[in-house]
């Protein structure tokens, strides 16, 4: 079963992403949430989602670290990670690449793009 994990410490953003991807739920995709980096890692290990929307700026463990852990330490290369950042032009693309992110999206993001990317990664 296709799974998408949404990670952001802001509840509104989690809700926004969930509602944006709602139409996929009708098509059999399960949407899971996490509100911090450590929970995200646990959930990824347990649930093995195909796609993760991962916020960068979170307390305690940020998105770069989660990404790095998943891609390098846990070697889960088949998990597609979208880094979400509220930094526009200041976003450190190099750091994102080094952490192993597949793509980054800046906030405010376009809901259509989010759905499009999800469909592309999940192949639906």
């Amino acid at each position: 079963m296709a799974k998408i994990l949404i990670v952001d410490d802001e509840p509104h953003i989690r809700l926004l992403l969930m509602q944006t991807l709602e139409e996929l739920e009708d098509e059999g995709v399960e949407l899971i949430m996490a509100d911090n980096g450590e929970e995200a890692l646990e959930t990824i290990k347990a649930e093995r989602p195909q796609l993760v929307f991962l916020d960068v700026m979170m307390p305690k463990m940020n998105g770069f670290d989660v990404c790095h852990a998943v891609k390098n330490e846990m070697a889960m290369k088949d998990v597609y990670i979208v880094l979400l950042t509220a930094k526009g032009q200041e976003f450190d693309k190099q750091k994102g690449n080094q952490a192993g992110a597949d793509i980054y999206m800046t906030k405010p993001f376009n809901p259509d793009e989010v759905v499009e990317k999800a469909r592309e990664v999940l192949g639906i």
């Binding site: 802001e10 509104h12 953003i13 926004l16 509602q19 700026m57 509220a86 930094k87 405010p108 809901p111």
Partner: peptide
Amino acid sequence: FISIVSHELRTPLTSIIGFTKLIRK
């Protein structure tokens, strides 16, 4: 400061734009 300002300003804006688009849809 620049990092924090950019993050703090854009986060609520993301909700405003995002939810409005969802409402419209």
